[in-house]
Structures are given as structure tokens and as C-alpha cells.
């Protein structure tokens, strides 16, 4: 068990980080190359000003017409996305591990905040899951992969919460926590989770098109 944990938290972690980083770069690189070959105008019309204008808009809660039309989903989405990024990055336990390994540390979330954040993530996932089931327009679009993705995201947070509460089987759960976290990280570039790093490019391109060619808002 311990061996497995050491392996998971050591080499395997490296693997997942590398897969994540290399995967993201690879996909971005491939898209950039494809665009150069077949969508030349994409480069011609990209405008930093309009790209940032649009990205900025879409990062402000209730900043767009679409968000105002779906206030609950918007609130849940923003809270969820903030928590899903902040909690793992600034969790005291994660930073501590990093410090022990490399002697580098950074600001950490207060325990209550991290706890609340985890709950927000899980609640958000439940909301998304329910939304996929209940809303006909979303259910129509949802396939097994979409639900699986929600579970994939839920796992590290649920196991983390379990471990924090020292629930039964905590050692197994910890192992699961590490493994699922790594799986999630490694899955980002190859699943729809890639929206994480594609968002600025897609949004930026659309912002540029609307700003510099169409002279209209895209929010």
C-alpha cells in the first residue's frame, strides 16, 4: 500500500504533470499548425485588443447577455470554476508536499476556505449532473462521456474530502485521491476539459472577428 502510494505520489505524479503539460502544448501546437495550413485568416484577423476585450467580458460574472439569461448556472459556473482551480493549487496539504520535495512554497488557502471550496466543486458537479439530466436541451446534447467527465472531476475532490474527514479506509482513499487527481490532470488535454486552455484562444478569435471585422459586440 505504502509502496503504491509512494509510486503514485512520486513518479506517477511526474508522468501526469508531463502528460498534462506536453499534451496541452501539443494540442495547441497542432491547432496552431493546422490553422496556419488551412485557416490562414485566423492569424490575419487576430487582434490582441479585441481578443482581450472579449475574454475580459466573459470573465466578469454577469458580464454578458448569455450569463444574465441564466443567472443560476452563471453563479454556479463561476463559483465552481474558481474553486476547481484554486483549491488544488492553494491547498495547504498540496503546498506542503511541494515544499517538502522542492523547498518552494506559496500562499495557501485557509482551511475553512479550502473546505468550502471543495464543497462548492462537488455541489457544482451535482448541479451540472442534474442539469444534464433535467434540462431537455442539455440532456439531448449529453453523452456518456459528458457524465463520465463530471465523475472524473468529482473523484479527487470527493476522495480529498473523505481523507480530510478521516473516513474509513482512508489509506485506500488517499491512494485513490492521488490517482484520480493525476488521471484528471492527464485527461485535460485529451478530453473536453481542454476547454480550460482553449478558451482564451477561441474566445479571443471570436472577439477579434467581432471587434475588428464585424464591429459588433460578442457578448
Amino acid at each position: 500500500m505504502t509502496k503504491a502510494y509512494v509510486f503514485a505520489a512520486g513518479p506517477l505524479l511526474w508522468v501526469s504533470v508531463i502528460v498534462f503539460a506536453a499534451g496541452c502544448l501539443l494540442r495547441l501546437g497542432r491547432l496552431a499548425w493546422l490553422a496556419r495550413k488551412k485557416d490562414r485568416p485566423v492569424y490575419a484577423y487576430m487582434s490582441a485588443h479585441y481578443a482581450l476585450r472579449s475574454i475580459g467580458r466573459w470573465l466578469v460574472p454577469m458580464g454578458t447577455e448569455s450569463m444574465r439569461k441564466h443567472p443560476v448556472t452563471t453563479v454556479v459556473s463561476f463559483a465552481f470554476h474558481a474553486a476547481v482551480v484554486l483549491v488544488p493549487l492553494f491547498l495547504f496539504a498540496h503546498v506542503l508536499l511541494f515544499y517538502e520535495a522542492f523547498g518552494i512554497s506559496w500562499w495557501t488557502l485557509p482551511e475553512e476556505a479550502a473546505y468550502a471550496g471543495t464543497l462548492v466543486v462537488l455541489a457544482g458537479l451535482v448541479y451540472f449532473f442534474a442539469r444534464r439530466l433535467i434540462r431537455p436541451e442539455v440532456r439531448y446534447l449529453s453523452g456518456p462521456a459528458d457524465f463520465a467527465l463530471l465523475v472524473l472531476v468529482a473523484l479527487p475532490f470527493a476522495t480529498g474530502l473523505w481523507a480530510f474527514h478521516h473516513g474509513p479506509g482512508v489509506r485506500v482513499v488517499m491512494l485513490l485521491h492521488v490517482l484520480s487527481g493525476e488521471a484528471l490532470l492527464a485527461a485535460i488535454p485529451f478530453t473536453k476539459l481542454s476547454h480550460m486552455f482553449l478558451f482564451p484562444f477561441l474566445r479571443g478569435y471570436m472577439g477579434s472577428e467581432f471587434g475588428s471585422v464585424r464591429h459588433a459586440r460578442d457578448w
Partner: peptide, 28 residues
Amino acid sequence: KSEGGARLKAYVKTCMSCGLCADACHFY
């Protein structure tokens, strides 16, 4: 193969099936 470029891939693969576009469309 010859015309399916980056935009095609990025659009189709990034769509989160969130359905937020639904009530933008007058057909819907």
C-alpha cells in the same frame, strides 16, 4: 482532410454540450 482546419476541430471538440446557446436560436 483537405479543408477540415483548426476552427472545425476546435469548435466541435470544445463544445461542452452545455446548451447555453439554445435560447439564442429562434428555431429552438
